[in-house]
Design a protein around this nucleic acid. Structure first.
Lengths: 207, 207
DNA sequence: TTGATTGCATACCGATTGGTATGTAAGGTT
DNA sequence: AACCTTACATACCAATCGGTATGCAATCAA
């Protein structure tokens, strides 16, 4: 009655991480209990503590998996193929805006959520979140560096600009959650694009 | 030796909210237990549930108090006295950057932290966070509206621009937590200022 | 075919959780 | 002076928490 079909051997760890991804995005890390995770994954607590030494270890694994997952997704995307580096950046922004059409928990960021709760209490999770945030820089950093090389802007570095993409993403998510509306998150990307067009003297094509 | 001096009658509620403000900023809402709060405030659980019907009710009271506190702080500040509306906005940004010199938990935002955890699980707390975020808009909205009236920018509304201040604030805090460094939060405000100067054709004064 | 290892499930544990029931002292009202 | 209400403190509770000890079936190496 409980578990109609037993979870196949070898899948427990992946299912636990997938369950954590969903639950943590909805309720946060602290509010998600180990029992919650096991129930959602369809496994028992024995499986949990076989794969993870502690709940904190699951948190680290979750964030690292998140880093890898998002990294692979953006790396595989065709926006990287465009000729002009700024076009790649704008295409990346288009992609980010597309995500905002999905339900809120699905465009919420695992790293941003967990680091809010554990930046002081868990050095390991904070470090994992740092890796994740930094990996986000890399999705646009090379393109921005290339664009800046061709069109220098005094006082503006590629690193600092890349950070603004994460600022817009994370800040946009918080506003979307608070106002229960993805529109401000979309507006954050719109303003970032307008900022870049002004910096690089590249007005939007009309028509 | 536990409570050397008894907390004076009438102060329990305020002390509980102050304790919650500190603990929630450090550990998040879910990870902060009622016992934690009572210990930090120097009162007993009887006092807690005398003033608050539940932990969730404390959360709502905390966020509402936060809204009022920050609102009063910014309203009282002399930046509001400047003649030019854009100068008021830039002075506001200076003020925000000043906060970033303090320890991380002290410039962390109560509303942003709590809404991450409870936007799905607690409608009451989410609504309180919405009030708080919206009240943040008001710190710059009239100045931006005035500036836009004198210098219209096609496709840009004062509301949308005001939102970007919260995006930069909240996003900057998350990056500061993840990288354990306030610099990206400061950079977020720097880029926002540069964006505004470009939009309003108001280059920074040199020398 | 055996033995060891891996990948779980079952059952249990002490501590902590949010919350309650009750007592009591102070302050205001009449 | 009697009374009531407010503002707490004390003591307790069932449920849930993260974690452990143990058992066992599947898989692999020899």
């Amino acid at each position: 009655m409980t578990t109609a079909t037993r979870v196949p051997r070898g899948e427990a760890r992946a299912r636990l991480i997938a369950a954590a991804r969903d639950l943590v995005r909805r309720k946060g890390f602290a509010a998600t209990s180990v029992d919650d995770l096991c129930a959602a994954a369809g496994v028992t607590k024995g499986a949990f503590f076989h794969h993870f030494a502690s709940k904190e270890a699951l948190g680290v694994a979750l964030v690292d998996d998140w880093t890898e997952m998002t990294g692979a997704m953006f790396a595989a995307h065709p926006y990287n193929a465009k000729e002009d580096p700024l076009d790649r950046v704008f295409a990346y922004l288009d992609l980010r805006r597309e995500f905002l059409g999905r339900p809120l928990p699905e465009f919420s960021c695992v790293a941003g959520t967990t680091v809010q709760e554990s930046y002081e209490t868990s050095p390991a999770i904070r470090a994992a979140a740092e890796r994740s945030i930094r990996s986000g820089f890399d999705h646009v950093l090379p393109h921005l560096a290339e664009a800046l090389a061709a069109h220098p802007v005094p006082g503006v570095t590629a690193e600092s600009l890349a950070q603004q993409f994460q600022v817009a993403t994370q800040g946009g998510i918080i506003l979307a959650k608070a106002l229960n509306d993805p529109a401000p998150a979309r507006a954050a990307f719109d303003h970032l694009e307008r900022y870049l067009r002004l910096l690089f003297d590249r007005p939007a094509a009309t028509g």
